[in-house]
Nucleic acid binder design. Structure first.
Lengths: 211, 211
DNA sequence: GATAAAATTAAACAAACGTTTAATTAACTT
DNA sequence: AAGTTAATTAAACGTTTGTTTAATTTTATC
Protein backbone atom coordinates (compact mmCIF):
# COMPACT_ATOMS: atom_id res chain seq x y z
CA UNK A 1 0.00 0.00 0.00
CA UNK A 2 1.12 3.49 -0.81
CA UNK A 3 1.99 5.74 2.13
CA UNK A 4 -0.82 8.14 2.92
CA UNK A 5 -0.46 11.74 1.84
CA UNK A 6 -0.42 14.96 3.79
CA UNK A 7 -3.10 17.57 3.22
CA UNK A 8 -0.75 19.69 1.12
CA UNK A 9 0.24 16.74 -1.02
CA UNK A 10 -3.41 15.98 -1.67
CA UNK A 11 -4.08 19.61 -2.52
CA UNK A 12 -1.26 19.55 -5.05
CA UNK A 13 -2.52 16.33 -6.61
CA UNK A 14 -6.08 17.63 -6.85
CA UNK A 15 -5.03 20.95 -8.35
CA UNK A 16 -2.74 19.21 -10.79
CA UNK A 17 -5.44 16.77 -11.85
CA UNK A 18 -7.88 19.56 -12.57
CA UNK A 19 -5.37 21.65 -14.48
CA UNK A 20 -3.99 18.71 -16.48
CA UNK A 21 -7.54 17.85 -17.50
CA UNK A 22 -8.19 21.41 -18.64
CA UNK A 23 -4.89 22.39 -20.26
CA UNK A 24 -3.04 19.11 -20.70
CA UNK A 25 0.15 17.99 -19.02
CA UNK A 26 2.49 20.10 -21.15
CA UNK A 27 0.10 23.04 -21.10
CA UNK A 28 0.22 23.20 -17.32
CA UNK A 29 3.25 24.60 -15.51
CA UNK A 30 4.35 23.67 -12.03
CA UNK A 31 3.77 27.31 -11.12
CA UNK A 32 0.14 26.99 -12.25
CA UNK A 33 -0.33 23.95 -10.06
CA UNK A 34 1.38 25.42 -7.01
CA UNK A 35 -0.56 28.65 -7.30
CA UNK A 36 -3.88 26.82 -7.64
CA UNK A 37 -3.04 24.82 -4.54
CA UNK A 38 -1.75 27.88 -2.69
CA UNK A 39 1.59 26.21 -2.10
CA UNK A 40 5.15 27.14 -3.00
CA UNK A 41 6.35 25.86 -6.38
CA UNK A 42 9.39 24.13 -4.96
CA UNK A 43 7.15 21.83 -2.94
CA UNK A 44 6.26 19.85 -6.05
CA UNK A 45 9.83 18.70 -6.53
CA UNK A 46 10.23 18.35 -2.79
CA UNK A 47 7.22 16.06 -2.41
CA UNK A 48 7.04 14.18 -5.68
CA UNK A 49 10.49 14.56 -7.21
CA UNK A 50 9.28 16.03 -10.49
CA UNK A 51 6.24 17.10 -12.47
CA UNK A 52 6.33 13.73 -14.28
CA UNK A 53 6.29 11.80 -11.03
CA UNK A 54 3.41 13.92 -9.77
CA UNK A 55 1.48 12.80 -12.85
CA UNK A 56 2.36 9.17 -12.17
CA UNK A 57 1.17 9.59 -8.61
CA UNK A 58 -2.22 10.79 -9.89
CA UNK A 59 -2.48 7.67 -12.03
CA UNK A 60 -1.45 5.32 -9.26
CA UNK A 61 -4.00 6.81 -6.89
CA UNK A 62 -6.94 6.85 -9.28
CA UNK A 63 -6.64 4.07 -11.79
CA UNK A 64 -7.35 1.00 -9.72
CA UNK A 65 -10.76 2.00 -8.42
CA UNK A 66 -12.76 0.97 -11.47
CA UNK A 67 -11.20 -2.47 -11.77
CA UNK A 68 -11.80 -3.23 -8.12
CA UNK A 69 -15.49 -2.38 -8.39
CA UNK A 70 -15.82 -4.61 -11.44
CA UNK A 71 -14.10 -7.52 -9.78
CA UNK A 72 -16.30 -7.25 -6.72
CA UNK A 73 -19.36 -7.34 -8.96
CA UNK A 74 -18.18 -10.38 -10.91
CA UNK A 75 -17.69 -12.34 -7.70
CA UNK A 76 -21.36 -11.91 -6.72
CA UNK A 77 -22.98 -15.32 -7.13
CA UNK A 78 -26.53 -13.98 -6.96
CA UNK A 79 -26.27 -12.30 -10.36
CA UNK A 80 -26.70 -13.96 -13.73
CA UNK A 81 -24.27 -13.12 -16.59
CA UNK A 82 -26.57 -10.48 -18.07
CA UNK A 83 -26.99 -8.73 -14.76
CA UNK A 84 -23.23 -8.80 -14.29
CA UNK A 85 -22.62 -7.40 -17.76
CA UNK A 86 -25.15 -4.61 -17.27
CA UNK A 87 -23.66 -3.93 -13.86
CA UNK A 88 -20.22 -3.66 -15.44
CA UNK A 89 -21.58 -1.15 -17.94
CA UNK A 90 -23.03 0.93 -15.14
CA UNK A 91 -19.78 0.85 -13.18
CA UNK A 92 -17.95 2.27 -16.19
CA UNK A 93 -20.57 4.97 -16.72
CA UNK A 94 -20.56 5.90 -13.05
CA UNK A 95 -16.79 5.85 -12.70
CA UNK A 96 -15.96 7.82 -15.85
CA UNK A 97 -18.56 10.51 -15.27
CA UNK A 98 -17.73 10.74 -11.59
CA UNK A 99 -14.03 11.21 -12.17
CA UNK A 100 -14.23 13.44 -15.19
CA UNK A 101 -10.89 15.19 -14.77
CA UNK A 102 -8.93 11.99 -14.40
CA UNK A 103 -10.60 10.31 -17.35
CA UNK A 104 -9.94 13.31 -19.57
CA UNK A 105 -6.26 13.06 -18.65
CA UNK A 106 -6.35 9.31 -19.21
CA UNK A 107 -7.73 9.82 -22.70
CA UNK A 108 -5.06 12.37 -23.61
CA UNK A 109 -2.27 10.25 -22.19
CA UNK A 110 -3.39 7.24 -24.21
CA UNK A 111 -3.13 9.32 -27.37
CA UNK A 112 0.13 11.03 -26.50
CA UNK A 113 2.21 8.07 -25.35
CA UNK A 114 5.08 9.83 -23.65
CA UNK A 115 5.52 8.58 -20.11
CA UNK A 116 6.56 4.88 -20.15
CA UNK A 117 5.49 4.34 -16.57
CA UNK A 118 1.96 5.48 -17.39
CA UNK A 119 1.76 3.52 -20.64
CA UNK A 120 2.60 0.41 -18.66
CA UNK A 121 0.01 1.17 -16.00
CA UNK A 122 -2.73 1.68 -18.60
CA UNK A 123 -1.76 -1.47 -20.47
CA UNK A 124 -1.98 -3.53 -17.30
CA UNK A 125 -5.43 -2.13 -16.61
CA UNK A 126 -6.62 -3.04 -20.08
CA UNK A 127 -5.26 -6.56 -19.84
CA UNK A 128 -6.78 -7.18 -16.45
CA UNK A 129 -10.10 -5.80 -17.64
CA UNK A 130 -10.06 -8.06 -20.69
CA UNK A 131 -9.39 -11.06 -18.49
CA UNK A 132 -12.34 -10.18 -16.29
CA UNK A 133 -14.68 -9.71 -19.23
CA UNK A 134 -13.38 -12.85 -20.86
CA UNK A 135 -14.25 -14.89 -17.79
CA UNK A 136 -17.72 -13.40 -17.63
CA UNK A 137 -18.39 -14.06 -21.30
CA UNK A 138 -17.30 -17.69 -21.04
CA UNK A 139 -19.72 -18.10 -18.17
CA UNK A 140 -22.53 -16.59 -20.24
CA UNK A 141 -21.67 -18.82 -23.16
CA UNK A 142 -21.60 -21.94 -20.98
CA UNK A 143 -25.08 -21.09 -19.77
CA UNK A 144 -26.20 -20.66 -23.38
CA UNK A 145 -27.03 -16.98 -22.91
CA UNK A 146 -24.30 -15.37 -25.02
CA UNK A 147 -23.42 -16.21 -28.58
CA UNK A 148 -20.03 -17.54 -29.64
CA UNK A 149 -17.13 -15.52 -31.08
CA UNK A 150 -17.50 -12.32 -29.15
CA UNK A 151 -14.69 -9.83 -29.76
CA UNK A 152 -13.93 -8.69 -26.24
CA UNK A 153 -11.72 -5.65 -26.93
CA UNK A 154 -14.23 -4.54 -29.55
CA UNK A 155 -17.05 -4.78 -27.05
CA UNK A 156 -15.05 -2.84 -24.48
CA UNK A 157 -14.08 -0.29 -27.13
CA UNK A 158 -17.74 0.51 -27.60
CA UNK A 159 -18.36 0.80 -23.88
CA UNK A 160 -15.36 2.96 -23.06
CA UNK A 161 -15.53 4.78 -26.38
CA UNK A 162 -19.17 5.72 -26.01
CA UNK A 163 -18.87 6.88 -22.42
CA UNK A 164 -15.56 8.66 -22.98
CA UNK A 165 -16.81 10.42 -26.06
CA UNK A 166 -19.89 11.47 -24.11
CA UNK A 167 -17.51 12.90 -21.53
CA UNK A 168 -15.80 14.92 -24.26
CA UNK A 169 -19.13 15.87 -25.76
CA UNK A 170 -21.15 16.70 -22.66
CA UNK A 171 -21.62 20.38 -23.43
CA UNK A 172 -22.73 19.71 -26.99
CA UNK A 173 -25.13 17.05 -25.77
CA UNK A 174 -26.59 19.45 -23.25
CA UNK A 175 -27.08 22.14 -25.85
CA UNK A 176 -28.53 19.77 -28.44
CA UNK A 177 -31.25 18.60 -26.08
CA UNK A 178 -31.85 22.09 -24.65
CA UNK A 179 -30.92 21.13 -21.13
CA UNK A 180 -28.85 24.22 -20.37
CA UNK A 181 -31.17 25.32 -17.58
CA UNK A 182 -31.00 22.01 -15.74
CA UNK A 183 -28.96 21.73 -12.58
CA UNK A 184 -25.66 19.92 -13.11
CA UNK A 185 -26.58 16.95 -10.94
CA UNK A 186 -29.94 16.55 -12.69
CA UNK A 187 -28.32 16.72 -16.13
CA UNK A 188 -25.74 14.13 -15.18
CA UNK A 189 -28.36 11.84 -13.72
CA UNK A 190 -30.22 11.94 -17.03
CA UNK A 191 -27.05 11.38 -19.05
CA UNK A 192 -26.05 8.39 -16.96
CA UNK A 193 -29.51 6.87 -17.28
CA UNK A 194 -29.54 7.44 -21.05
CA UNK A 195 -26.09 5.92 -21.42
CA UNK A 196 -27.12 2.93 -19.36
CA UNK A 197 -30.22 2.18 -21.44
CA UNK A 198 -28.37 2.84 -24.68
CA UNK A 199 -25.45 0.56 -23.83
CA UNK A 200 -27.71 -2.21 -22.54
CA UNK A 201 -29.46 -2.27 -25.89
CA UNK A 202 -26.08 -2.44 -27.60
CA UNK A 203 -24.69 -5.11 -25.32
CA UNK A 204 -27.77 -7.26 -25.64
CA UNK A 205 -27.56 -7.09 -29.43
CA UNK A 206 -23.85 -7.87 -29.54
CA UNK A 207 -24.02 -10.64 -26.96
CA UNK A 208 -27.06 -12.50 -28.31
CA UNK A 209 -27.83 -11.81 -31.97
CA UNK A 210 -26.29 -14.27 -34.40
CA UNK A 211 -25.07 -12.36 -37.44
CA UNK B 1 -11.48 28.67 -51.33
CA UNK B 2 -8.22 28.77 -49.46
CA UNK B 3 -5.14 29.74 -51.47
CA UNK B 4 -3.08 26.74 -52.42
CA UNK B 5 0.08 26.06 -50.48
CA UNK B 6 3.68 25.82 -51.56
CA UNK B 7 5.61 22.58 -51.14
CA UNK B 8 7.39 23.89 -48.07
CA UNK B 9 4.17 25.02 -46.47
CA UNK B 10 2.70 21.56 -47.02
CA UNK B 11 5.82 19.94 -45.57
CA UNK B 12 5.50 22.08 -42.46
CA UNK B 13 1.81 21.24 -42.08
CA UNK B 14 2.46 17.52 -42.53
CA UNK B 15 5.35 17.46 -40.08
CA UNK B 16 3.37 19.48 -37.58
CA UNK B 17 0.35 17.20 -37.88
CA UNK B 18 2.43 14.12 -37.23
CA UNK B 19 4.28 15.63 -34.28
CA UNK B 20 1.14 17.12 -32.71
CA UNK B 21 -0.49 13.70 -32.92
CA UNK B 22 2.49 12.07 -31.20
CA UNK B 23 3.47 14.62 -28.58
CA UNK B 24 0.52 17.00 -28.42
CA UNK B 25 0.39 20.67 -29.36
CA UNK B 26 2.17 21.95 -26.25
CA UNK B 27 4.62 19.05 -26.28
CA UNK B 28 5.81 19.97 -29.76
CA UNK B 29 8.10 22.94 -30.29
CA UNK B 30 8.33 24.98 -33.47
CA UNK B 31 11.95 23.85 -33.64
CA UNK B 32 10.79 20.20 -33.65
CA UNK B 33 8.43 20.91 -36.51
CA UNK B 34 10.92 22.88 -38.58
CA UNK B 35 13.62 20.26 -38.10
CA UNK B 36 11.28 17.43 -39.11
CA UNK B 37 10.35 19.36 -42.23
CA UNK B 38 13.97 20.34 -42.92
CA UNK B 39 13.06 24.01 -42.92
CA UNK B 40 14.22 26.99 -40.90
CA UNK B 41 12.29 27.66 -37.71
CA UNK B 42 11.49 31.25 -38.62
CA UNK B 43 9.52 30.07 -41.64
CA UNK B 44 6.66 28.95 -39.42
CA UNK B 45 5.97 32.48 -38.25
CA UNK B 46 6.73 33.76 -41.74
CA UNK B 47 4.20 31.48 -43.43
CA UNK B 48 1.49 30.99 -40.85
CA UNK B 49 1.96 33.86 -38.40
CA UNK B 50 2.27 31.65 -35.34
CA UNK B 51 2.27 28.10 -34.05
CA UNK B 52 -1.39 28.51 -33.11
CA UNK B 53 -2.35 29.61 -36.60
CA UNK B 54 -0.43 26.69 -38.07
CA UNK B 55 -2.63 24.40 -35.96
CA UNK B 56 -5.75 26.18 -37.18
CA UNK B 57 -4.56 25.76 -40.75
CA UNK B 58 -4.30 21.99 -40.19
CA UNK B 59 -7.88 21.93 -38.97
CA UNK B 60 -9.19 24.04 -41.82
CA UNK B 61 -7.52 21.81 -44.40
CA UNK B 62 -8.57 18.47 -42.94
CA UNK B 63 -11.84 18.80 -41.12
CA UNK B 64 -14.33 19.24 -43.95
CA UNK B 65 -13.54 16.06 -45.85
CA UNK B 66 -15.65 13.70 -43.76
CA UNK B 67 -18.78 15.86 -43.84
CA UNK B 68 -18.60 16.27 -47.59
CA UNK B 69 -18.41 12.52 -48.14
CA UNK B 70 -21.41 12.00 -45.87
CA UNK B 71 -23.48 14.65 -47.61
CA UNK B 72 -22.72 13.16 -51.01
CA UNK B 73 -23.86 9.77 -49.76
CA UNK B 74 -27.10 11.13 -48.30
CA UNK B 75 -28.02 12.72 -51.62
CA UNK B 76 -27.90 9.36 -53.42
CA UNK B 77 -31.52 8.46 -54.23
CA UNK B 78 -30.72 4.84 -55.07
CA UNK B 79 -30.01 3.97 -51.45
CA UNK B 80 -32.57 3.18 -48.77
CA UNK B 81 -32.18 4.65 -45.26
CA UNK B 82 -30.42 1.57 -43.91
CA UNK B 83 -27.92 1.54 -46.73
CA UNK B 84 -27.28 5.23 -46.15
CA UNK B 85 -26.81 4.71 -42.44
CA UNK B 86 -24.42 1.83 -42.96
CA UNK B 87 -22.62 3.87 -45.60
CA UNK B 88 -22.27 6.72 -43.12
CA UNK B 89 -20.78 4.33 -40.57
CA UNK B 90 -18.24 3.13 -43.14
CA UNK B 91 -17.29 6.67 -44.11
CA UNK B 92 -16.50 7.44 -40.47
CA UNK B 93 -14.47 4.26 -40.08
CA UNK B 94 -12.58 4.88 -43.29
CA UNK B 95 -11.95 8.55 -42.61
CA UNK B 96 -10.83 8.22 -39.00
CA UNK B 97 -8.50 5.29 -39.65
CA UNK B 98 -7.13 6.85 -42.83
CA UNK B 99 -6.30 10.16 -41.15
CA UNK B 100 -5.04 8.80 -37.87
CA UNK B 101 -2.76 11.69 -36.98
CA UNK B 102 -5.41 14.33 -37.52
CA UNK B 103 -8.06 12.45 -35.58
CA UNK B 104 -5.72 11.93 -32.65
CA UNK B 105 -5.15 15.69 -32.57
CA UNK B 106 -8.87 16.28 -32.91
CA UNK B 107 -9.54 14.08 -29.90
CA UNK B 108 -6.97 15.87 -27.76
CA UNK B 109 -8.18 19.30 -28.81
CA UNK B 110 -11.76 18.43 -27.88
CA UNK B 111 -10.59 17.51 -24.41
CA UNK B 112 -8.23 20.45 -23.94
CA UNK B 113 -10.42 23.32 -25.13
CA UNK B 114 -7.87 26.06 -25.54
CA UNK B 115 -8.01 27.54 -29.03
CA UNK B 116 -11.39 29.29 -29.54
CA UNK B 117 -11.08 29.19 -33.31
CA UNK B 118 -10.77 25.41 -33.23
CA UNK B 119 -13.54 24.93 -30.69
CA UNK B 120 -15.83 26.83 -33.01
CA UNK B 121 -14.77 24.79 -36.03
CA UNK B 122 -15.40 21.50 -34.21
CA UNK B 123 -18.77 22.69 -32.91
CA UNK B 124 -19.90 23.64 -36.41
CA UNK B 125 -18.89 20.20 -37.66
CA UNK B 126 -20.88 18.49 -34.94
CA UNK B 127 -23.96 20.59 -35.58
CA UNK B 128 -23.86 20.04 -39.32
CA UNK B 129 -23.36 16.32 -38.78
CA UNK B 130 -26.32 16.16 -36.42
CA UNK B 131 -28.49 17.93 -39.00
CA UNK B 132 -27.49 15.42 -41.65
CA UNK B 133 -28.18 12.44 -39.42
CA UNK B 134 -31.43 13.99 -38.24
CA UNK B 135 -32.66 14.30 -41.82
CA UNK B 136 -31.73 10.71 -42.56
CA UNK B 137 -33.45 9.40 -39.45
CA UNK B 138 -36.66 11.28 -40.22
CA UNK B 139 -36.63 9.70 -43.66
CA UNK B 140 -36.19 6.24 -42.15
CA UNK B 141 -38.96 6.89 -39.67
CA UNK B 142 -41.34 8.11 -42.39
CA UNK B 143 -40.73 4.89 -44.28
CA UNK B 144 -41.48 2.94 -41.10
CA UNK B 145 -37.98 1.46 -40.95
CA UNK B 146 -36.61 3.23 -37.89
CA UNK B 147 -38.25 3.45 -34.50
CA UNK B 148 -39.28 6.73 -32.89
CA UNK B 149 -37.33 8.72 -30.30
CA UNK B 150 -33.80 8.10 -31.48
CA UNK B 151 -31.19 10.09 -29.57
CA UNK B 152 -29.02 11.37 -32.41
CA UNK B 153 -25.99 12.66 -30.50
CA UNK B 154 -26.04 9.45 -28.47
CA UNK B 155 -26.02 7.38 -31.64
CA UNK B 156 -23.16 9.44 -33.07
CA UNK B 157 -21.32 9.21 -29.76
CA UNK B 158 -21.23 5.47 -30.12
CA UNK B 159 -20.04 5.64 -33.70
CA UNK B 160 -17.31 8.21 -33.18
CA UNK B 161 -16.51 6.92 -29.71
CA UNK B 162 -16.06 3.34 -30.83
CA UNK B 163 -13.94 4.18 -33.85
CA UNK B 164 -11.89 6.80 -32.03
CA UNK B 165 -11.24 4.55 -29.10
CA UNK B 166 -10.19 1.83 -31.51
CA UNK B 167 -7.77 4.37 -32.96
CA UNK B 168 -6.34 4.96 -29.50
CA UNK B 169 -6.35 1.25 -28.79
CA UNK B 170 -5.01 -0.16 -32.07
CA UNK B 171 -1.80 -1.57 -30.65
CA UNK B 172 -3.57 -3.27 -27.75
CA UNK B 173 -6.13 -4.72 -30.14
CA UNK B 174 -3.38 -6.04 -32.37
CA UNK B 175 -1.60 -7.68 -29.46
CA UNK B 176 -4.77 -9.13 -27.96
CA UNK B 177 -5.65 -10.92 -31.18
CA UNK B 178 -2.05 -11.95 -31.89
CA UNK B 179 -1.86 -10.05 -35.15
CA UNK B 180 1.59 -8.57 -34.61
CA UNK B 181 3.03 -10.41 -37.60
CA UNK B 182 0.42 -9.10 -40.01
CA UNK B 183 1.32 -6.39 -42.48
CA UNK B 184 -0.04 -2.99 -41.49
CA UNK B 185 -2.42 -2.75 -44.44
CA UNK B 186 -3.80 -6.22 -43.81
CA UNK B 187 -4.30 -5.51 -40.12
CA UNK B 188 -6.13 -2.28 -40.87
CA UNK B 189 -8.31 -3.96 -43.48
CA UNK B 190 -9.38 -6.48 -40.85
CA UNK B 191 -9.99 -3.81 -38.22
CA UNK B 192 -12.11 -1.75 -40.58
CA UNK B 193 -14.17 -4.78 -41.55
CA UNK B 194 -14.65 -5.78 -37.91
CA UNK B 195 -15.67 -2.26 -36.97
CA UNK B 196 -18.12 -2.14 -39.85
CA UNK B 197 -19.87 -5.38 -38.91
CA UNK B 198 -19.83 -4.49 -35.23
CA UNK B 199 -21.32 -1.04 -35.73
CA UNK B 200 -23.96 -2.30 -38.17
CA UNK B 201 -25.17 -4.70 -35.53
CA UNK B 202 -25.30 -1.84 -33.05
CA UNK B 203 -27.01 0.57 -35.40
CA UNK B 204 -29.61 -1.96 -36.41
CA UNK B 205 -30.42 -2.64 -32.77
CA UNK B 206 -30.64 1.03 -31.85
CA UNK B 207 -32.60 2.05 -34.93
CA UNK B 208 -35.19 -0.74 -34.90
CA UNK B 209 -35.69 -2.43 -31.52
CA UNK B 210 -38.42 -0.94 -29.39
CA UNK B 211 -37.28 -0.92 -25.79
C1' DG C 1 14.09 24.47 26.31
C1' DA C 2 17.83 22.77 23.52
C1' DT C 3 18.54 19.74 19.38
C1' DA C 4 17.49 17.52 15.26
C1' DA C 5 14.51 16.78 11.45
C1' DA C 6 11.07 18.29 8.31
C1' DA C 7 8.71 21.83 5.88
C1' DT C 8 8.66 26.11 3.51
C1' DT C 9 10.41 30.02 1.23
C1' DA C 10 12.38 33.40 -2.32
C1' DA C 11 15.84 33.48 -5.38
C1' DA C 12 18.63 31.69 -8.83
C1' DC C 13 19.63 28.24 -12.49
C1' DA C 14 20.29 26.80 -17.16
C1' DA C 15 17.53 25.24 -20.82
C1' DA C 16 13.82 25.67 -23.93
C1' DC C 17 10.13 28.28 -25.60
C1' DG C 18 7.69 31.21 -29.64
C1' DT C 19 8.71 35.09 -32.14
C1' DT C 20 11.32 38.96 -34.30
C1' DT C 21 15.15 41.03 -36.47
C1' DA C 22 18.32 42.29 -39.80
C1' DA C 23 21.11 40.53 -43.34
C1' DT C 24 21.46 37.65 -47.33
C1' DT C 25 20.02 34.86 -51.22
C1' DA C 26 16.66 33.58 -54.77
C1' DA C 27 13.09 34.55 -57.76
C1' DC C 28 10.54 37.21 -60.52
C1' DT C 29 9.38 41.79 -63.48
C1' DT C 30 10.15 45.12 -66.75
C1' DA D 1 20.83 43.63 -66.69
C1' DA D 2 18.66 46.44 -63.20
C1' DG D 3 15.22 46.73 -59.82
C1' DT D 4 11.76 44.77 -56.88
C1' DT D 5 9.73 41.45 -54.27
C1' DA D 6 9.75 37.07 -51.91
C1' DA D 7 12.18 33.47 -49.47
C1' DT D 8 15.59 32.03 -46.32
C1' DT D 9 18.93 32.28 -42.78
C1' DA D 10 21.45 32.63 -38.17
C1' DA D 11 21.23 35.17 -34.34
C1' DA D 12 19.08 37.51 -30.79
C1' DC D 13 14.87 38.68 -28.09
C1' DG D 14 12.40 38.47 -23.83
C1' DT D 15 9.60 34.85 -21.44
C1' DT D 16 8.66 30.85 -19.40
C1' DT D 17 9.95 26.34 -18.29
C1' DG D 18 11.20 22.54 -14.44
C1' DT D 19 14.37 22.11 -10.97
C1' DT D 20 17.83 23.29 -7.40
C1' DT D 21 19.85 25.95 -3.84
C1' DA D 22 20.59 27.89 0.43
C1' DA D 23 18.42 30.24 4.06
C1' DT D 24 14.62 30.28 7.20
C1' DT D 25 10.69 28.71 9.73
C1' DT D 26 8.02 25.13 11.73
C1' DT D 27 7.51 20.83 13.95
C1' DA D 28 8.88 16.98 16.59
C1' DT D 29 12.08 14.55 19.95
C1' DC D 30 14.41 14.16 24.02
Amino acid sequence: MKPSLSIKQTQLLDSAELLFSQKGFDGTSVRDIAEAAGINTAMISYYFGSKEKLMEEIFERKSLNLLENVEKLLKDDNLDPFQKMYGLVDIYIENILQRKAFHRILLCEQIINQNPSIIQMVERMKTRNSENVNELIRLGQKKGLFKKNIDIPMLTNTLVGTVSYMLINLEFYKKYHHMETLKDEEFERIVKKKLSVHLRTIYKAILTHES
